[in-house]
Design a binder for these strands. Structure first.
Length: 836
DNA sequence: ATGAACTTCTTTTTT
DNA sequence: AGAAGTTCAT
């Protein structure tokens, strides 16, 4: 994508298009009836409810083509908004391809944010900004807020600036200016939230800067307070299309409603079941309310799925059916039956990763890694155990320890036999396989495992290029060269690399600048003149200022390209050298990134254009290719599809995420459920769900309970894989063979398996069984005797302390932080012991 | 002013 | 377990 061609965007209709007579519409024949209806209803409000894999993008792009092709609209009269740059790019490409060369790019097809930047630059003065305002990244934003918080004498231990940033963000998402924040929010951030928000906005205006939320908020404000401007755009944007409507927040919703208010030619596409961004302000309510907002709207449901097999669809439908307040859709497909969704439990997270790795190898080479042959790989103890279960006996007194042993044995047996010889219907290329996790920390065990077995993988959506420290530093240098008054950029680089300008020196600069009412760069110059700094710091600062002046003069110089200038800045500032001297293992990579950054500059006219681009394109541009397994979060997977999908970590607390449920209760749980729905519907042919009995959480082993979503999977569409897991083990055993009725019944019975029951039981806080208590007593006794009076000990929750008394199985401890407490001895370790 | 040592927090998800 | 932020000693 290139920088802006905004001045032309409104006026220059594509004459070629305009001159065209209405053409035939062969593209309509490619559509199914529902899609066609959505495409042909050009006038008035349209809501397209597009389930996963139902050809939503196709319908949307075809609609655009139809608008153009029938001469209903010119390219510049169509406002088409997406959430991601990727989606915008994709649509541009598809429309372009369908229309041939006749259409120049659509100037108003882009993300909410990029379109708002274009608009806001034209009308900046209406919100007291200059049109060359800068867009802050989250680092700048946070730094600014920290300053305000410190100035307000707030203990940022108890009230972190991060929290304030989050609060302000949410307010902006709801389109509340400081004056509009409702009274109910008055207690936010120790009662000082609103005041700080106001200060923050003032500060931004002083800096001629906006944050991401402002882009929308300012435009909504302008539309609401300037009828003439709004009217102008209502005339210009005669047709509006919105992708992923279920993800819009209030500000975006208002923005759209204002723009569509006149002609009501708005077509929103979305799927309420795939709304997964509530945490950042998205309101499912927007899509649920569409028909009320736009009475008489045409509502079209796209329900024919072209992606997944019936079992996969049924599993997904079964899960999502647990949500209330749905608009309701019934996905169907003509695809062949295919495999059931596969479910497997594992001993722990590492084991899960190991198994997935082997399974992928098997997929790749054409043999199923799974225990189709499970009947003959059971270890003796497992067999006995399962027979006991089969007879209806309780798995009494089995504590984790026992199960662990059993399963370790079984696991070993299986790793020999695991790769059964049954061929899959087909093999999979590695890039047809994806692992979708709930939280990015889950990726780690997979990466570790894949590195050791040499499985090529790629992580999608990780830290984005432009968010990396070295890139931001370099960008700050560029910003400062282009606009020396960019105080936030100055703060970022003044002591990077180290110039001997620490807190104290920086404070002096701040004070001088404020006293003189000038920018930090000018303030620094004055400070030097006044000899307010001495020694190394002074000379280094002088060098930096001199450099900035020199580079600044070269901006726009016709003898020095902006690429050369950028290189010069990085070299002469000492930034490149800073990383060359760095001995840490990541230093070479960072240098590499800097090179890439400079290279990326070549695609732009000048530095300014590049800076503009980067502030909005936080995309991971480089989509590396190659035969690799993809690892990503469920959120990152939305909109993608893969023949084979692994969904690991289906454990309560992880997925659904505890935090989600704590913060948002049922709403949070429903969003998690939608996430599960999104995950399953990414799969075309094979979908494998797994969970582990134990997992490291914050470096601490925790036993896990299978996700409640597993309960919600319709049994008829799930195949429970036996070992090397904890829970399914041995169910096929009773019947003794693959395909027998007994085995199938037994498989379905995983829900009644002892491991399952044990987990369920624990969730209901049933009291411990007798033997366990007895065992705990022994443990306690041992634990007490392991300690002595006065010993320095450590407790997971209370920290360090000294033993001042022993009573039965409890120790009385004087904790350094938490004071005197009585705690059960087994929860305490010697301060010098290494707990494990 | 700077690095080492020690603490505390973190794990959602992103334009 | 690791990162990030804090405090402390040079």
């Amino acid at each position: 994508m290139s920088s802006f061609d905004e001045s032309d965007a409104f006026e220059s209709a594509s004459l070629a298009t305009r001159a065209m007579a209405a053409r035939p519409t062969p593209y309509l024949d490619d559509l199914n009836p529902a899609q066609r209806e959505a495409v042909e209803a050009l006038e008035g409000p349209v809501l397209m409810l597009a389930g996963a894999g139902t050809g939503k993008t196709k319908a949307l792009t075809t609609r655009m083509v139809h608008l153009l092709n029938t001469n209903t609209a010119r390219p510049n009269e169509i406002l088409a908004v997406t959430f991601t740059n990727k989606a915008a790019r994709e649509m541009k490409m598809r429309v372009g391809r369908m229309m041939g060369e006749a259409v120049e790019g659509m100037p108003w097809l882009g993300t909410f944010h990029s379109i708002c930047v274009k608009l806001l630059r034209r009308h900046a003065e209406l919100v007291e900004l200059k049109s060359n305002f800068t867009i802050l990244d989250t680092d700048d934003q946070l730094r600014l807020l920290k300053q305000l918080v410190a100035a307000a004498n707030i203990d940022d231990k108890r009230w972190p600036a991060r929290m304030l940033a989050g609060i302000i963000d949410q307010w902006k998402n709801r389109a509340w200016t400081p004056d509009q924040v409702p009274a109910a929010e008055a207690s936010a951030y120790d009662g000082k939230g609103v005041a700080l928000y106001k200060q923050y906005q003032t500060r931004l205006r002083e800096l001629n800067a906006v944050d991401f939320g402002d882009l929308l908020l300012h435009m909504v404000t302008i539309f609401q307070t300037h009828d003439d401007v709004l009217e102008q755009y209502r005339r210009w944007f005669r047709y509006i299309l919105v992708d992923e409507y279920q993800d819009t927040n209030v500000a975006q919703y208002l923005w759209l409603r204002l723009l569509a208010g006149g002609h009501r030619n708005i077509c929103c596409v979305g799927d309420d079941d795939q709304s997964i961004y509530g945490w950042r302000g998205a309101e499912v309510g927007n899509i649920l309310r569409f028909e009320k907002d736009f009475p008489g709207a045409t509502v079209v449901r796209l329900e024919q799925n072209y992606r997944s097999t019936p079992h996969i669809l049924a599993a997904a439908s079964g899960v999502i059916a647990g949500n209330r307040d749905r608009l309701g859709k019934e996905l169907w497909t003509q695809a062949e039956e295919g495999e059931k969704v596969r479910l497997i439990g594992h001993w722990d997270g590492d084991e899960e990763a190991r198994w997935v790795g082997e399974e992928i190898e098997a997929f790749h080479s054409g043999t199923s890694g799974v225990a189709k042959r499970r009947d003959n790989v059971r270890s003796t103890s497992a067999t006995q155990e399962s027979e006991r279960i089969a007879k209806g006996g309780k798995r009494s007194q089995n504590r984790e320890g026992d199960i662990h042993e059993i399963n370790l044995q079984r696991t070993e047996a299986l790793s020999e036999q695991g790769k059964s010889n049954l061929p899959r219907p087909r093999t999979f290329g590695l890039d047809e396989i994806a692992i979708l996790v709930r939280a990015s920390h889950q990726m780690r065990s997979f990466e570790d495992r894949f590195l050791t077995i040499g499985m090529p993988y790629r992580v999608i959506g990780g830290p984005r290029f432009y968010e990396r420290m070295e890139i931001r530093d370099a960008m700050a240098y560029f910003r400062l060269v282009v606009s020396p008054a960019d105080d936030l950029a100055f703060e970022r680089v003044v002591n990077t690399p180290k110039r001997g300008l620490g807190d104290k020196a920086q404070q002096k600069i701040q004070v001088t600048a404020r006293q003189n009412g000038v920018s930090l760069v000018e303030g620094a110059a004055i400070l030097l003149e006044e000899k307010g700094l001495t020694g190394k710091g002074a000379s280094e600062l002088a060098k930096l200022l001199e450099g900035l002046r020199r580079w600044g003069r070269l901006v726009g110089d016709k003898d020095v390209s902006h690429v050369e200038l950028a290189e010069m800045v990085l070299d002469e500032s000492g930034y490149t050298e800073f990383w060359q001297m760095d001995k840490t293992p990541e230093a070479p990579g960072r240098l590499e990134n800097l090179k890439e950054l400079v290279k990326a500059l070549e695609g732009f006219e000048n530095l300014q254009g590049f800076l503009e681009h980067v502030s909005l394109i936080m995309d991971n541009e480089s989509e590396e290719v190659g035969e690799k397994v993809s690892i990503m979060t469920l959120h990152a997977a939305k909109g993608l599809e893969f023949p084979a999908v692994f969904l690991p970590g289906w454990e309560d607390g992880l997925f659904p995420s505890q935090r989600s449920m704590d913060e948002s209760g049922l709403k949070g749980l429903e969003e998690e459920r939608r996430l599960a729905y999104v995950g399953i519907t990414r799969a075309e042919e094979v979908c494998t769900i797994s969970f582990a009995g134990n997992r490291r959480v914050y470096g601490q082993w925790q036993s896990q309970m299978p996700s409640r979503f597993i309960d919600e999977l319709p049994e008829d569409h799930v195949e429970v894989l036996t070992p090397p897991g904890l829970y399914g083990g041995g169910y096929g055993a009773a019947g003794g063979g693959l395909g027998t009725i007994e085995s199938r019944v037994a498989e379905a019975n995983v829900y009644n398996s002892p491991g399952w029951r044990r987990m369920q039981a624990r969730s209901q806080q049933r009291p411990m069984s007798q033997p366990q208590e007895a065992r705990d007593m022994v443990i306690d006794a041992q634990a007490v005797s392991a300690h002595e009076m006065g010993e320095r000990v450590f407790h997971q929750k209370f920290g360090y302390g000294a033993i001042i008394g022993i009573e039965g199985d409890k120790l009385e401890i004087d904790f350094e932080k938490a004071g005197v407490k009585k705690v059960v001895a087994r929860f305490v370790t010697g301060a010098d012991d290494i707990p494990f």
